[in-house]
């Protein structure tokens, strides 16, 4: 398993360099659309490591086609030159009735399916590569429809899932989506996200995907349980942190991930015991 760290802002460049130098991470996930105005050669030089591309604000389900085509042309240049490990984007609502949603909302996985499928087909074509689409950290009951939606979308468009392990845990804790419901997607996926989360201020407490805490026990248990299914050839897992950059906490989490994926397969360990 290759382990990465997300890079979204200039402020965390020293942290990223230290994590690479200490070999805690193998690659850097660039929130690539934040850096579209950076000269190409600067990005090619980058951190001197492999990269993943995470597209945050294409809003490809909602934006007008002309703006997306313009963005895709620039992204394709970067994809060709930097040869990222994966290119990912988001399935979410960024606006409603013309108003920006600062806390992104979950789509209607059934009612919106055809529109999303057409847009995924179109956006993959414009980018010229397979997209990996991240699962949403569900709060409300629509989350029950997410696993089947992603399986269907994969079947119909070839798009992969950037399976966010802790988002699935959020959905499980918030609305009861069983973790087992994602088994087929885990089997079919090679690229993963993981992060800490926090509770809402008000009760009844919701689990909110905040990327500002250590990995939870529930997330680590989920990773442990499905470890051999996550850890397939070419697989990546990106540890996301966007606030509260407690470096010793981040080191500890990355060490936990490294240790977890350094263990021999369970079957081998069991056989040795026998």
């Amino acid at each position: 398993m290759q382990i990465g760290f997300n890079y979204t802002l200039g402020d965390t460049a020293p942290l990223v360099r230290r994590l690479l130098a200490s070999r805690r991470i193998d690659y850097v996930e660039l929130l690539i659309d934040n850096f579209l105005s950076v000269p190409l050669e600067d990005l090619v030089e980058g951190f001197g490591s492999p990269v993943g591309f995470h597209i945050m604000f294409s809003k490809f389900i909602e934006s007008d086609e002309a703006a997306l085509e313009n963005m895709a042309r620039r992204l394709r240049v970067l994809i060709d030159r930097l040869n990222p490990l994966y290119v990912s984007d988001h399935i979410a609502r960024f606006t409603h009735d013309g108003r920006q949603l600062y806390h992104l909302a979950e789509i209607d996985y059934i009612g919106d399916y055809e529109r999303v499928r057409r847009r995924v087909d179109w956006w993959q074509q414009k980018l010229g590569c397979q997209l990996h689409l991240e699962n949403y950290p569900s709060i409300m009951d629509g989350g029950y429809d997410a696993p089947h939606f992603h399986e269907r979308l994969h079947r119909d468009t070839g798009a992969g899932v950037l399976f966010d392990v802790s988002n699935a845990v959020c959905a499980h804790l918030n609305c009861g989506v069983p973790l087992q419901a994602w088994e087929g997607i885990i089997e079919a996926s090679s690229h993963f996200h993981v992060a800490g989360y926090n509770l809402s201020i008000l009760a009844p407490h919701l689990v909110v995907d905040t990327h500002d805490h250590a990995l939870s026990d529930a997330t680590l248990a989920f990773l442990e349980r499905y470890r051999t299914r996550f850890d397939t050839p070419g697989a990546t897992i990106t540890y996301e942190r966007d606030d509260n950059f407690d470096e010793s906490e981040i080191d500890d989490d990355l060490d936990r991930l490294r240790n977890l994926f350094s263990q021999p397969p369970l079957e081998v360990r069991d056989a040795q015991r026998v």
Partner: peptide, 28 residues
């Protein structure tokens, strides 16, 4: 109740009171 059901209220403080105080929708 899905997120889509709550869209009209996500940016309108006055609409929060449309939901019971102890509901997930209110906290969402």
């Amino acid at each position: 109740v899905t997120d889509a059901d709550l869209l009209d209220a996500l940016s309108v403080p006055a609409r929060q009171g449309d939901y019971p105080r102890d509901s997930r929708a209110f906290v969402r």
